[in-house]
Amino acid sequence: MGKRGTAAPRKRARRPSGRGRGRSRGPLSRIAPVTLALGILSLGAGAALAHWHADEQPVAAVAPAAPQAPRADRSPAAPAPPETDARPAAPPAAPSPSRPGRAAPPRSVPLTGAGTFTTARATGAEVGTGTLRRYRVQVEDGTGIPAADAAHEIERILAHPRGWAAHGRGRFQLVTEDADFVIRIATPKTADRLCLAQGLDTRGEYNCETTEGVVVNLKRWLLGSPTFTGTPAEYRHLIINHEIGHEIGLRSHMTCPGPGEPAPVMMQQIKGLRGCVSNAWPHDEDGRYITGPIVP
Rank of each mutant, 00 (worst) to 15 (best):
A45Y: 10
M254N: 08
W164M: 01
N217L: 00
H253P: 10
P161T: 08
N207H: 01
A72M: 06
T112D: 07
R156T: 10
L194D: 00
E177T: 13
I240V: 15
S75H: 06
T35K: 06
L273H: 09
A78Y: 07
I239R: 00
P91A: 06
A37I: 11
V59P: 02
R136F: 04
I185Y: 00
E155Q: 13
A197C: 07
I145R: 07
W221T: 00
E243K: 07
P91G: 05
A37E: 04
P188H: 05
R184A: 01
D286V: 04
C276K: 02
G124E: 09
F172D: 02
T131R: 15
P64Q: 09
G101L: 02
E285N: 13
W281V: 02
P105C: 09
G245T: 01
R193N: 05
A165P: 02
R184T: 04
A147P: 07
C256Q: 01
P282H: 08
G168P: 03
I290W: 06
T129E: 13
A72S: 10
P16V: 14
V62E: 05
L218G: 00
V62P: 06
H167W: 08
L49I: 15
G213D: 11
G245K: 02
G163I: 01
P188I: 00
V34K: 03
P100T: 15
G260A: 02
M254H: 12
R14P: 04
F172L: 03
G46Q: 06
P161H: 09
A147L: 07
P16M: 11
A159V: 09
A54Y: 12
Y135N: 03
Y289L: 15
F172K: 03
L222P: 01
G224M: 08
T211N: 12
P188R: 03
L41Y: 08
R203A: 15
Q57F: 11
T176I: 05
A61S: 11
G142C: 01
H253F: 07
A47R: 11
T231P: 02
P95V: 14
